[in-house]
Design a protein around this nucleic acid. Structure first.
Lengths: 100, 100
DNA sequence: ATAACGATTCGATAACTATCGAAATATATT
DNA sequence: AATATATTTCGATAGTTATCGAATCGTTAT
């Protein structure tokens, strides 16, 4: 991964509200077992738990998608988010000091 | 680590030039074995390798220090930087999806 | 059909930041 | 002492962004 893309990813995580948003999405994702179909991350619930407006959330989600950190899927009138695990793993490797 | 501090760290890494600066410091650090005393990271060399001015480098270094990502030490008229390995390890854990 | 709800778009604004050149400071060299 | 080099500080500027309220669009429920 080139520096520019990496910087973009870190930028997407650089706002406290957006980072918390990301963590909430990751949290949901973590508890989603194959059998447990109802643990998807609905944006509606996040909006309630963070105290910033819906337009701002929408903006932040776009940024996270743009950095490829999450992907979204429309389910009726709801929006579902899930993290891009592979990218996060790449970022973790990038941060490890002895990255062969 | 709370979200606000984490966001600050990511913000410090969110500028391409500053991230490259950080990587260069980390790179130097990596090759410093106990016996190999001459592999310290001098800012002068970095300034030459990145094409941005000294004032900007100085600003970026301050940001990295402020985020606790690196520490600096004056050696004569030179400045030496080294990464804060423990913090980086914390960040890596924070990013892992199943953090304990 | 109409209302309610979730999400997005738009326009505006205040705050922040990366970068620069010039000047200043500190240390080293001659 | 005078000069050169490394770094910092300062002031300015152009660009970016987080956030908001209002309006809009889609989908679902009544």
């Amino acid at each position: 991964m080139d520096t520019k893309k990496a910087a973009k990813i870190f930028k997407a995580l650089s706002n406290p509200n957006r980072l918390e948003l990301y963590f909430k999405i990751a949290e949901m994702h973590e508890s989603s077992f194959p059998t447990d179909t109802d643990s998807e991350c609905f944006v509606t619930d996040i909006i309630r738990s963070l105290n910033i407006g819906a337009p701002t959330i929408s903006h932040h989600i776009k940024e996270l998608v743009n950095a490829d950190l999450i992907s979204t899927e429309k389910k009726g009138k709801f929006l579902i988010c899930k993290v891009n695990e592979e990218l996060i793993e790449e970022v973790r490797k990038l941060l490890s000091l002895q990255q062969q």
